[in-house]
Amino acid sequence: MTGFREVQGDLAAQGYVASDDLAMALTLAVSLGRPLLLEGAAGVGKTEVARALAAVRETRLIRLQCYEGLDASQAIYEWNYQRQLLTIRAAAEDGETGQSVEARIFSRDFLLERPLLAAISQPVAPVLLIDEIDRADEEFEAYLLEILSDFQVTVPELGTLEAVTKPVVILTSNGTRDLSDALRRRCLYAFVDYPDRATELAILAARLPEVEARLAAQVVGFVQALRREELDKVPGVAEMLDFAAALTGLGIADLTRDPAVLQATLVTLLKTQEDRARVTTEVAQRLAGKAA
């Protein structure tokens, strides 16, 4: 059994800087075989955790992106109707008996695996990422509960398909609606917040090692200050990385030197028109000056 410090170290080797709480929650999710529910604002790296974890465990990442109206045929399995129809037509011409055709068209070959079924039928336990579960309907959430507790899928024509291996399940939520208590109870929970200054510097160093220390400190200071401003859409970690990459790409070594360039590169951080209007050249300069 590995402790959470090792998990933290492994994740860091993959370029993911995890807080103590998150590393502990991940360790428990893996060792207890419980799903882990991650909540937090958009852009704090919830999805990225799953990717890093899959890389650490050297296994596949299977991702199910939830949306309103997601149903079982999109999430679990579906019969390949076209192929079944063609097979029936071909069988009719060959004079094959009904029973043998039926046995053939309702076999695994004609089953289209969707993420949830794929996740439980891998030879090596994969990481299953159920992204933005709050966007899916309540009915789907209820169905998911069943799969998460039993790890089996029942196909009426085939019978029950047991899990070959139990995947490590990570659910993420942006909090667009309240999740049911039943789901919350079944999951371990971790809240992912915007990283503090030191953590964000570590993330930047891990992801973009080519950024010089001075610029990195300025970038992180600037973004941290920007998060305290009144914005509609607060820039996340991914935006910060884009911003740093943009500045390095343009060959800028000092944030405060050229206001015009800074203003132009803000497109990587501010994603609504109101926010753009709010962060004028003066505001940007003030924030950059403080960060420097």
């Binding site: 402790g3 959470f4 929650a25 428990l28 060792s31 208590d181 371990l188 929970y189 809240f191």
Partner: peptide
């Protein structure tokens, strides 16, 4: 047991993951 938590902070993290369900 499985987390091998020995320090109070590690125990806090482990129990937090299990016992909490929302922010």
């Amino acid at each position: 047991e499985v987390s091998g938590a020995v320090t109070p902070d590690a125990c806090r993290g482990a129990l937090k993951a299990v016992c909490t369900g929302c922010r």
